[in-house]
């Protein structure tokens, strides 16, 4: 377990290319132990690619990275045993039920990990009543909850969540926020991306705005607002994300 002052994740100068397209052009991020860090950015800014690299699913083209003190690319299985991940896209087998899927997931993850029983996990995200319905018949919001339950299955030290509340109704989103706050109180570190600025303003201990493959702004909400002499996160976001490519590349 990471200690209160040790970083859960440190990335310096991360680079990644899709052929000729430079998706990441030197990303710097620190996530402190026990904090909730929010990554913002427009579509295509590089958020999901950043998470892919931080999780060890893509090999960075440059820079340095430690996730829970390990190199996620070279020590992928050790990292994934201690990190809970929600992917941006739904990654669920349509023909299985939520209960069958979570039981399978518990078998596929490290035997030494602390597995949350599948039934308890479904209850925690409010899906107990849908445990025996095929996943293909669940609503988009219910599938999102199941993705979150999957990330929580091994009681992870670090959660990396790509738009975890996308498609959820306001009430369910509020329940998810409460669940995340509860995890923070128990010492879990959380890095999440979202397109909901009020979610970022409400939840984040610190946040960063990614623009064209670089971190354009980072800090606490107050620090970000003060630095830009603005009163709302939406104003800062608008200013950063309308920066021209020439300015962004400087």
């Amino acid at each position: 377990m990471t200690t209160a002052h040790s970083p859960a994740l440190i990335a310096r100068g991360l680079r990644y290319d899709y052929g000729a397209f430079e998706a990441l052009r030197g990303i710097d991020i620190d996530v402190h132990a026990g904090e909730l860090f929010v990554l913002l950015g427009t579509n295509g800014a590089g958020k999901t690619t950043t998470l892919d690299v931080l999780e060890g699913r893509r090999q960075p083209g440059g820079g340095s990275l430690r996730t829970l003190g390990m190199d996620p690319w070279r020590q992928r299985r050790m990292v994934t045993a201690r990190v809970g991940i929600v992917l941006q896209e739904s990654a669920l087998p349509q023909e299985l039920t939520p209960l069958e899927f979570l039981q399978l997931w518990n078998r596929l993850t490290d035997a030494a990990a602390t597995h949350v029983p599948a039934d308890n996990n479904l209850a925690r995200v409010g899906l107990a009543h849908r445990r025996d319905v095929r996943i293909g018949r669940l609503s988009g919001g219910e599938r999102r909850k199941l993705e979150l339950a999957t990330a929580l299955a091994t009681d992870p030290e670090l959660l990396i969540l790509d738009e975890p509340t996308s498609g959820l109704d306001p009430e369910t989103r509020a329940d998810t926020w409460e669940l995340l706050r509860d995890l923070l109180r128990r010492g879990t570190s959380i890095l999440l991306t979202t397109h909901y600025l009020e979610e970022a303003a409400t939840l984040a201990d610190r946040l960063a705005i990614v623009h064209r493959g670089r971190v354009a702004v980072s800090g606490t909400l107050d620090e970000v607002l003060t630095a830009h002499r603005m009163t709302t996160l939406a104003d800062v976001f608008h200013q950063v994300s309308t920066t021209s490519p020439e300015e962004a590349s400087r």
Partner: peptide, 14 residues
């Protein structure tokens, strides 16, 4: 296409 291969690679299964 269903992202299940990615999902299974997030597990610790070889």
């Amino acid at each position: 296409q269903q992202h299940l291969l990615e999902r299974w690679r997030l597990s610790t299964a070889p």
